[in-house]
Computed example of a mutant assay.
Amino acid sequence: MTTRIPTTSGPRLSTAPSSIKPRQLSHLHAQLAQLSANLADLENLLRMTSVQAESIRGLGAFHGGLFMAASKVLGEETIAGQANAQQQQQRGGET
């Protein structure tokens, strides 16, 4: 069994311009077309994500406002309830 040692005197066949086959070129062209299509899809998705991020920010601000309003209302009710309870205790202690 003999082994074949590549020679270094001439250009390798895989790097020689004339060795590129039309099939390889068409495959590379198809891959480039697929890459271009994927990049266009990615650009559209990024644009949509940007719009959605702005909407989510607005929704977060609205949600925060609702939480602050609910906290204020519930806080006032709690304070009023505690004041009523203290008044009832004072009245109950007086009688």
Rank of each mutant, 00 (worst) to 15 (best):
M1F: 07
M1S: 07
P6I: 03
P6M: 07
T7C: 06
T7L: 06
S9Y: 06
S9G: 06
G10Q: 03
R12L: 15
S14N: 05
S19F: 00
S19T: 02
I20R: 13
K21H: 09
Q24W: 06
Q24T: 11
Q24D: 13
Q24L: 06
L25V: 15
S26P: 02
L28Q: 11
L28D: 14
H29W: 02
A30G: 14
A30Q: 15
A30Y: 02
Q31I: 05
L32G: 08
A33W: 01
Q34W: 02
L35G: 01
L35A: 09
L35M: 07
N38G: 09
N38C: 11
N38R: 09
L39K: 01
A40F: 05
A40Y: 06
D41S: 00
L42R: 10
E43D: 15
N44Q: 08
R47E: 13
M48H: 02
M48R: 01
V51Q: 02
E54K: 04
S55N: 14
S55C: 06
R57E: 14
R57K: 11
G58M: 07
G60E: 07
G60C: 06
A61N: 09
F62I: 08
F62Q: 15
H63L: 13
G64N: 14
L66Y: 04
L66C: 10
F67V: 14
M68E: 12
A69K: 02
A69W: 01
A70T: 12
K72Y: 05
V73F: 09
V73W: 06
V73Q: 11
G75D: 03
G75T: 14
E76G: 01
A80I: 00
G81R: 04
G81N: 12
G81F: 11
Q82A: 00
A83T: 13
N84K: 12
Q86K: 11
Q87N: 13
Q89E: 15
Q90L: 15
R91S: 15
R91W: 05
G92I: 03
E94V: 08
